[in-house]
Design a protein around this nucleic acid. Sequence first.
DNA 1: ATAGCACCTAAACCTAACTTTAGGTCAATA
DNA 2: TATTGACCTAAAGTTAGGTTTAGGTGCTAT
Lengths: 147, 147
Amino acid sequence: MYTIGQVSERFHIPISTLRYYDKEGLFPEIQRTSGIRRFGEKEIDALRVIECLKKSGLEIKDIKQFMEWCIQGNETYPQRLNLFLRQRRQVEAELAHMNRVLDMLKFKCWYYEEALKDGNEDRVTRMKPEDMPEEIRRAYENSHQNT
Amino acid sequence: MYTIGQVSERFHIPISTLRYYDKEGLFPEIQRTSGIRRFGEKEIDALRVIECLKKSGLEIKDIKQFMEWCIQGNETYPQRLNLFLRQRRQVEAELAHMNRVLDMLKFKCWYYEEALKDGNEDRVTRMKPEDMPEEIRRAYENSHQNT
DNA sequence: ATAGCACCTAAACCTAACTTTAGGTCAATA
DNA sequence: TATTGACCTAAAGTTAGGTTTAGGTGCTAT
């Protein structure tokens, strides 16, 4: 069992944020001894899930909904499974997108390295994809396709 | 040359957002004919860069800074290269993080699939990593290491 | 000529997720 | 005893990134 200060330190989350999460119903079963919150394994686990669901694009109120399903017991397994399946597809799409962003950044790094060498952008701006280094062409084409 | 409405449609960006970007200085050289914005190749390119830099975690005001460097010419190549190198590292870190989030989601999907089969969480909650399916164990360990 | 459409501006409004503030309890230490 | 430190609450404030509103211009089709 940990105090709010210990949890804050261990997970590098501001105390104010932990209190805010609690107020928003993200630790629905947290215990208190004379008013003071006691974070147990359940709440530590909740923190990991919160981090994960937040990163996957969920809002606080939807995470609260999940926490409520957890309390309701066995009958909400389908909803919970469904949520994780949906967020999983979401994150897979997001990863694909981020890989395109990364390719754009790789291309831009190469572009400015060349511009810096040349002292201007003339050569590199006019260069056709087929004259670019293999890896750069791949990155360029992946990040510029569509639109 | 495109009007704001054409750009909005082609890139699925609200007109209000394009105007907002312009107001924030993200199209510093955009032309106008009797008050009406004319989006050229430069601005289309800017849109791609904006998307990329935004996704990589930059704020609008920092993207504006980049656009200003572009106007200033050759002497700002080092700053521009530096920015892209920094954002590239940023996105690589973010991708690594997202992969851990994805592993957590994979684990949770498996967890609730098993709970659903069993009708309760008893077996799956008590299960040790070494008894989990190979791929699930990997996901579990990757998403629960540290903290 | 009048209605509709695409454009324009300035300024007010909105939302999520926090953070800060102001005021208070309680236990241990100087 | 009084001060410090860790906790508490309710409520107000903050921020980024837009969106909405209200009012206006100018072309074109009926």
